[in-house]
């Protein structure tokens, strides 16, 4: 049982990388849209605020922090008692 558990843990994937990747991609796309694709009409909509630019920066910062967490503290399943006992 414990052998099987370790084998499973080794294959365990880390959902944090998925989250960081998606949010990071969103950040990059919004940032680019904010820099290159913002019309005056877009700016007027939000009273002069470049929504895409700022959101993009925010998402990117979040994604980097999240990925750093995943890399500093990788998934480890600590050896423990069989739960069925």
């Amino acid at each position: 049982m414990s052998d099987k558990k370790t084998a499973r843990a080794a294959r365990a994937f880390d959902v944090r990388t998925f989250i960081a990747a998606l949010i990071g991609l969103y950040g990059v796309i919004l940032l680019l849209t904010g820099i290159f694709g913002t019309s005056d009409a877009d700016l007027a909509k939000a009273d002069g605020l470049n929504v895409n630019l700022w959101t993009g920066l925010g998402l990117l910062a979040f994604a980097i922090a999240f990925q750093a967490w995943a890399m500093l503290r990788p998934v480890r399943v600590p050896p423990r008692k069989d739960p069925e006992q």
Binding site: L30, T33, G34, G37, T38, D42, K45, A46, N52
Partner: peptide, 11 residues
């Protein structure tokens, strides 16, 4: 509809 530009709209 009123506040978000394309891009943020997709999110």
């Amino acid at each position: 509809r009123d506040l978000l530009p394309n891009g943020m709209l997709g999110v």
